[in-house]
Simulated assay, not measured.
Amino acid sequence: MALDELTEELARSAAAGDHRALGELLARIEPDVMRHCSRILPYHQDAEEASQDTLLAVARNIGRFEGRARFSTWLHIVTANCARTTYRSLKRRAAEQTSDELPTQKPDARRVSVIAGSRLDLLDAMEALEADKPDLAQALVLRDIVQLDYNEVAEQLGIPLGTAKSRIHQARKYVQAALGEDYR
């Protein structure tokens, strides 16, 4: 999500309480948010749900955006978190379905598409990492999803550079082990 300076300025104004700026900001970021959610979630409807959740989260939490980092960085984190939350919710709903209910209309992505199946496997691995070691998951999201450099990750997390690099390395090893031999 490469956002321009006008978007960054709108975010600062919205964070300061300007409701007009917030409306304009949401309209400007919506296509980028949808594209980002579509990269994470394989089904269009799921990506739309995550996109709407992201826009709602931005609207509700814009006052927490402090402007220390770029808005685009903050938005990446919110978007990734909402997409992962949507995925967890969908997974939970699927598990709750009983065998006598009608099957879902969506085919199993792992059988339909290698790319979608890989994405779902990666989301499962990230979910396990988040549950087991949230500090590692946060560092990995900032580096590999938000694509911050190591110095920016350390700054965002308020930790030394060496600690940031160590967390990212440990997180990658954890995810690789969770994915198993098929992904090496």
Results as ranks from 00 to 15, higher is better:
residue 174 Y to R: 11
residue 111 R to T: 11
residue 33 V to K: 11
residue 10 L to E: 03
residue 103 P to N: 06
residue 50 A to D: 03
residue 110 R to H: 13
residue 37 C to R: 03
residue 129 L to A: 04
residue 133 K to D: 13
residue 170 Q to M: 11
residue 173 K to Q: 14
residue 163 T to H: 11
residue 4 D to H: 01
residue 55 L to M: 08
residue 125 A to R: 09
residue 42 P to R: 06
residue 164 A to L: 06
residue 69 A to C: 04
residue 170 Q to E: 13
residue 183 Y to H: 14
residue 1 M to F: 04
residue 135 D to I: 00
residue 31 P to T: 03
residue 97 Q to M: 15
residue 180 G to K: 08
residue 78 V to S: 02
residue 10 L to M: 13
residue 123 L to I: 03
residue 67 G to Y: 10
residue 47 A to W: 09
residue 156 Q to L: 02
residue 124 D to P: 03
residue 145 I to H: 15
residue 3 L to W: 08
residue 38 S to H: 04
residue 177 A to I: 04
residue 64 R to A: 12
residue 80 A to C: 10
residue 37 C to V: 04
residue 90 L to R: 15
residue 27 A to F: 08
residue 184 R to W: 11
residue 64 R to W: 06
residue 117 G to E: 07
residue 157 L to R: 14
residue 11 A to C: 00
residue 182 D to I: 01
residue 6 L to G: 00
residue 51 S to I: 03
residue 41 L to R: 08
residue 109 A to S: 12
residue 93 R to Q: 14
residue 154 A to D: 00
residue 81 N to H: 12
residue 112 V to D: 09
residue 88 R to W: 00
residue 48 E to C: 07
residue 159 I to C: 09
residue 4 D to G: 14
residue 5 E to Q: 15
residue 173 K to R: 15
residue 181 E to A: 14
residue 64 R to F: 10
residue 74 W to I: 02
residue 162 G to I: 01
residue 17 G to E: 07
residue 129 L to N: 04
residue 102 L to D: 11
residue 93 R to Y: 09
residue 40 I to Q: 13
residue 82 C to F: 02
residue 117 G to T: 05
residue 91 K to D: 10
residue 138 Q to D: 12
residue 32 D to T: 06
residue 87 Y to R: 04
residue 69 A to Y: 03
residue 108 D to V: 07
residue 75 L to I: 03
residue 54 T to F: 09
residue 108 D to C: 08
residue 25 L to F: 05
residue 181 E to T: 13
residue 19 H to D: 14
residue 22 L to V: 01
residue 98 T to H: 12
residue 166 S to I: 01
residue 10 L to C: 02
residue 142 L to Y: 13
residue 114 V to H: 10
residue 160 P to Q: 13
residue 63 G to M: 05
residue 141 V to F: 11
residue 162 G to R: 10
residue 12 R to C: 01
residue 116 A to I: 00
residue 76 H to S: 15
residue 67 G to E: 10
residue 117 G to W: 10
residue 61 N to V: 03
residue 171 A to S: 08
residue 139 A to D: 07
residue 72 S to Q: 14
residue 69 A to L: 09
residue 50 A to N: 02
residue 69 A to D: 08
residue 148 L to K: 00
residue 29 I to G: 03
residue 10 L to H: 06
residue 28 R to A: 14
residue 80 A to H: 13
residue 145 I to G: 00
residue 13 S to E: 14
residue 134 P to H: 07
residue 110 R to L: 03
residue 73 T to E: 05
residue 29 I to A: 02
residue 133 K to Y: 09
residue 167 R to N: 13
residue 50 A to L: 02
residue 87 Y to W: 15
residue 72 S to P: 00
